[in-house]
Design a protein around this nucleic acid. Structure first.
Lengths: 167, 167
DNA sequence: CTAATATGAATGAAGG
DNA sequence: CCTTCATTCATATTAG
């Protein structure tokens, strides 16, 4: 396994994050309540929104999105929230790894042909995996979400590069 | 393929301590890095305290708690502080969304079991003592308001595929 | 069937 | 207190 996680050792105690409401176990096909699986239509909607620039919808919008998604399948606010959070995280990580790889190239025998600036301004689109999602879901976001910070795409150039390398 | 970043190494005992730990004596094996992972016993202690009503221990108590936890593994005051902060936040959010979900159901022949306790058990009195650890900390009472993990979210799972709910 | 990957969910740590 | 980021865990899916 490439991703060997060393968590000291597994502790059989208290490791239960699974839902605890198997009350309706009458159904024979009750294969443990797994996690939510977004339907293709839902993914499309989510992608559209994400690619529209709203990478971090405020609470209110999250609810709205959830309502929209519910047309295609059961989903909760938390699911939407998690989805966007994971999406952001993933995008960023991919970019970082990609950028790191590029940086490695520039470290030797390099002329000034390609200069990779370490200070990435922001992730401007360029999303891998998904391209244009111009579908029937027209998600127009123009409302001024009076929330945490300016919605839409702003200079959210997070400096997140504060690598915490302890000891 | 896109997988190759992994520099974590093993940490038999797990170590992660204070932020300000100058490199005195450089550890031969660079263990640690990663965030603090509370051991089951530590979680138990923390849970007990939290459920005892002390959801927001003052500084002094935090230190005491930390000392108690240290018997089971390295931990800093900040870790304890963060733990309680996150715990409170999480509990609240779960409770809130739980209530919201309950409120959503209005028209149906479903039961109306709604025993959500909004009020936090602000300080109570009782004894805890989980065994194995006897310290000078006396936390009183014990009211189980918010249990530990178990997936309190309203995550929808793959239920029936015939989900078609109109707004 | 086993191994690797993709992704939803949980949680520690910070910032504001 | 609130939100957000990063890391980790668990599972679903897919490749071998």
């Amino acid at each position: 396994m490439i991703m060997d996680q060393e968590q000291t050792q597994h502790s059989p105690t208290g490791h239960s994050h699974s839902p605890s409401s198997p009350a309706s176990g009458s159904t024979s096909t009750e294969t443990v309540r797994s996690r939510w699986s977004p339907k293709p239509e839902q993914i499309l909607i989510l992608e559209s929104i994400f690619n529209s620039g709203m990478v971090n919808p405020p609470k209110e919008e999250t609810v709205r999105i959830r309502k929209m998604l519910e047309k295609f399948g059961a989903v909760g606010d938390a699911n939407v929230f998690y989805w966007f959070q994971n999406r952001r995280s993933r995008s960023r990580r991919r970019q970082r790894q990609l950028q790191a790889a590029a940086a490695a190239v520039t470290t030797n025998t390099c002329d000034q042909t390609m200069m990779v600036n370490t200070s990435l301004p922001q992730y401007s689109g360029a999303d891998l995996g998904f391209g244009g999602c111009s579908t029937s879901s027209n998600y127009l976001y123009a409302s001024s979400s009076t929330s945490s910070y300016g919605g839409g795409y702003d200079n959210h150039s997070n400096n997140g590069m504060e690598n915490l390398l302890a000891m």
